[in-house]
Design a protein around this nucleic acid. Structure first.
Length: 565
RNA sequence: GCGCCCGUAGCUCAGCUGGAUAGAGCAACGGUUUCCUAAACCGUAGGUCAGACGUUCAAAUCGUCUCGGGCGCACCA
């Protein structure tokens, strides 16, 4: 618990009938600095005491003793407001950040516990498009958040690398692709083959049979089929990796659906063994009507297994392999029902850990006039968006800071960061309508704003050119703009915790915008470097500490923090 | 039809485990640079928090219903 809150709670405990934990929950931060640093609302006491909250507040304010670090207690309406010693407060905050540096905001609540996070998980032989961005970025940010809190994280890319479409691709490749055997194939080529297959299949239905035939061969382990499939997979992974590298996204394992192929039989047997299944319309299902859900299909009438079956097998495998304390699926909200069903089946199988599985869903990305669709080719390729973002930033650098060194690297950090920050800014719940201008708007509450603020702070520190010390006169940090900033820096660790609790990276992006606003207001109102040596030392410490918090926040979102831009 | 999500300023969104006067950014208009990066900052204007009823000392926040938009609901993933 916060040292200041702790003191206030201990005071209140003496004069009220409430318990420590109740009091702690009630303590608030007043909306205005002038009202005080902490506040205790008296509404809940008015019931038991049968007095108006205003009167209780007045009485409490009179009777509570003033002990350090509290300097004043004042009733305002129904609130008892506490003022703490600003110098003590600043000293505590700034020294803490100064000591912890890159670790400020970290914790150990997760030590010894593993979290499995399933994110990105694209389909092989198709391009990564902008609507694939969200899963990757949200998942990656959650990975960083949990890691910061001391969890061991396993980031898994659950590739869509199995299914009849690979039979189709093999047929297309053999018919129209293999003559260029020496050509190095790209995902675009594979996509074209896939499209061509569908065009031709309309005229010639025999192609579909051929494709099914090849998929069967693939399932049976036919060496030619397997070799081609592996080839397609390699091509795709190479291209995916290029984009993951651009975005700075890391996975601990690429384990596609095909991997669980051999385990699915045992999984189905186990589910059957628990007496959970029955045959309905020739399909093998788990009836979930008691839980007001449609049935979970395990096997189609042609005996093939489904997505859900493989997900159940994968969950069993992951539990066995990683013994996770929590497993997080970062998948779009259109699959909510699917995961509810899968988790329910796991629960019915008797797995206590079923409720350690969470589906972190997010809103869809679509165009103004409708959905994005790989099948119809109605997509914006992720790579194009990233390249365009970097290109535009390059122009802005040319205009605003033409003498900058490393222009190329900075343009990359800022351009890609902008796309990333934009996607992580809104609560993940919300649908996103894709618009080029909006995606590439760099003004206001954006990634570049945060990075620019960081770069300015670095610039001041460079100009100062001496080591920063925490041995300063903390009472010099006294203006409103300064205090508001320091208060916000103090909040950072609790923001990380909340972001973890709600699986919500946007809490961090919003927090950074807030801190940067505080900083820029401070920056515009007060000079850091001046003839007053003591004041300069004090403000430079604040600058350095703010720089540190912004950097930590950017890193957790997966962004770079350039020192010049 | 049933289920889930969303609806806050012209636009994009914070605020939602109830609490002090509903906040930002963009767009509009006006201002700030002999001074640490003006990718910044300040000011003006802009609101029936979709609507109704209810719970409560107190509702943008909780509940019920209505309207509007999105998604899902058996052999795709």
């Amino acid at each position: 618990m916060d040292y200041f809150v702790k003191t206030i709670v201990s005071l209140l405990k003496e004069k009220t009938s409430l318990q420590e934990d109740e009091l702690e929950k009630l303590i608030e931060i007043p909306p205005d600095l002038k009202m005080g640093d902490y506040a205790f609302p008296c509404y809940s006491l008015s019931k038991t005491l049968k007095k108006a909250p205003n009167i209780i507040a007045t009485e409490l304010a009179k009777t509570l003793p003033i002990i350090s670090p509290i300097v004043e207690i004042k009733a305002i309406g129904p609130y008892v407001n506490f003022f703490v010693n600003k110098a003590t407060f600043s000293e505590m905050v700034l020294k803490k950040v100064c000591e912890e540096r890159d670790c400020y905001g970290s914790g150990n609540i997760g030590s010894g516990r593993t979290v499995v996070i399933d994110y990105s998980s694209p389909n092989i032989a198709k391009h990564l498009a902008v609507h694939h961005l969200r899963s990757a970025l949200i998942g990656s940010a959650i990975y960083n958040i949990y890691k910061t809190l001391g969890y061991r994280c396993m980031g898994i890319n659950h590739l869509g690398d199995w299914g009849t479409q690979f039979g189709q691709l093999i047929v297309a490749y053999k018919k129209w692709g293999s003559e260029n055997a020496h050509k190095s194939y790209t995902v675009t080529d594979l996509n074209n083959l896939y499209v061509k297959f569908h065009q031709e299949a309309e005229k010639n239905t025999a192609l579909e049979d051929e494709a099914r035939e090849w998929f069967k061969k693939l399932e049976a382990g036919d060496s030619e089929a397997k070799e081609l499939w592996q080839h397609f997979k390699d091509i795709s992974l190479k291209e995916f990796q290029k984009i993951y590298d651009m975005l700075g996204i890391h996975f601990d394992a690429f384990i596609g659906e095909s991997f669980y192929n051999t385990m699915v039989e045992d999984t189905v047997t186990r589910i059957k063994g628990k007496g959970l299944t029955r045959i309905s319309e020739q399909a093998l299902i788990v009836d979930l009507e008691t839980y007001s859900m449609p049935p979970c299909l395990l096997r189609k009438k042609d005996d093939a297994t489904l997505y859900a079956t493989r997900d159940i097998a994968a969950a069993e495998y992951r539990k066995k392999t990683y013994n996770f304390a929590k497993m997080i699926y970062v998948v779009g909200s259109e699959q909510k029902l699917h995961f509810k069903q899968v988790f329910k089946v796991l629960e019915l199988m008797g797995y206590g850990w079923a409720n350690h599985c969470v589906h972190v869903d997010f809103g869809l990305m679509k165009f103004k006039d409708g959905k994005m669709s790989t099948r119809k080719g109605k997509v914006v390729l992720l790579e194009d968006l990233l390249i365009e973002a970097v290109e535009r930033i390059r122009k802005i650098i040319e205009e605003k800071n033409p003498s900058l060194e490393n222009k190329e690297a900075v343009a990359k950090d800022v351009g890609i960061g902008a796309v990333l920050f934009a996607d992580l800014s809104a609560k993940r719940n919300k649908d996103v309508v894709f618009d080029w201008d909006e995606a590439l708007n760099f003004e206001g509450e954006t990634g570049p704003y945060v990075q620019y603020t960081h770069a300015r702070l670095c610039s001041i520190l460079r100009k100062y050119g001496r080591p920063v010390t925490a041995d300063i006169h903390f009472e010099l940090l006294k203006e409103d703009e300064t205090i508001i900033l320091i208060k916000n820096l103090w909040r950072y660790p609790s923001v990380i915790l909340k972001a973890a609790e709600f699986y919500e990276p946007s809490l961090i992006s919003n927090y950074l915008i807030d801190v940067c606003g505080n900083l820029n207001r401070f920056y515009n109102a007060h000079r850091v470097l001046s003839d007053d040596e003591e004041l300069t030392k004090a403000r430079i410490l604040l600058v350095d500490v703010t720089r540190q918090v912004i950097k930590n926040g950017l890193h957790i979102l997966g962004m770079r923090a350039p020192e010049r831009m």
